[in-house]
């Protein structure tokens, strides 16, 4: 077993363990921290696979952005320090069944897929330069269209946030 395989299994175990802790922890802040660690170790997997850019983006977006937002919203709720009440048995059964079904379905799909080495394809080096070129490429296999669509989506989200959060001026109140 090579070193990278060992590191992969360590990281994968950590991802799964902290993912499970996220679900099973009854203190909401601890659940958020577990989610953070799980996502950080996913970034570690990306670094292991030499897709550094994706790894850095995983940290910036998920850890630095989304988890911090989640933690802020936890701070703003009441009783964040207390243990959450235990879930009902029926709820536990239902969510357990759904989770197992999802896992089973994914395993089935993965087991059906035939993994074979790509032949005759020159791999693109995943550095920032190539990613940038590919992102704004408008020829075949370029990503400029999804890129612009996402831009419009984010712009709409920004405008929506401003509309919701803006203070009404006194003239419109009258």
């Amino acid at each position: 077993m090579s070193a990278s395989t060992i590191i992969f299994y360590i990281l994968a175990t950590l991802v799964v363990v902290f993912g499970a802790l996220t679900v099973f922890s009854r203190k909401i802040f601890r659940a958020a921290i577990s989610l953070l660690l799980s996502l950080t170790f996913v970034a570690g997997l990306y670094f292991l696979w030499d897709v550094d850019f994706i790894g850095a983006l995983q940290i910036i977006i998920y850890v630095g952005g989304i988890i911090v937002l989640i933690i802020f919203s936890i701070f703003l709720t009441h009783h964040s320090g207390q243990k959450l009440p235990k879930a009902k048995v029926s709820k536990k059964l239902l969510s357990g069944t759904l989770a197992v079904a999802g896992l089973g379905f994914t395993t089935w799909v993965v087991s059906q897929f035939v993994f074979k080495p790509a032949v005759g394809v020159t791999p693109v080096e995943p550095n920032v330069h190539n990613i940038g070129l590919q992102m704004l490429n408008y020829s075949e296999y370029g990503y400029v269209f999804p890129f612009e669509v996402i831009n419009i989506l984010l712009l709409a989200a920004l405008v929506g946030a401003i509309v919701i959060a803006i203070k009404k001026s006194q003239e419109t109140e009258k």
Binding site: I33, D52, N127, V128
Partner: peptide, 28 residues
């Protein structure tokens, strides 16, 4: 020696807030 050097530093510095938030919350 990575091709994302400065981006990595930015990413890590955005994680720095987590330790502070944890310390502040867990002190009660």
């Amino acid at each position: 020696n990575t091709n994302i050097g400065v981006l990595f530093v930015t990413a890590i510095s955005s994680m720095g807030v987590i330790g502070i938030l944890m310390a502040g919350w867990s002190s009660n």
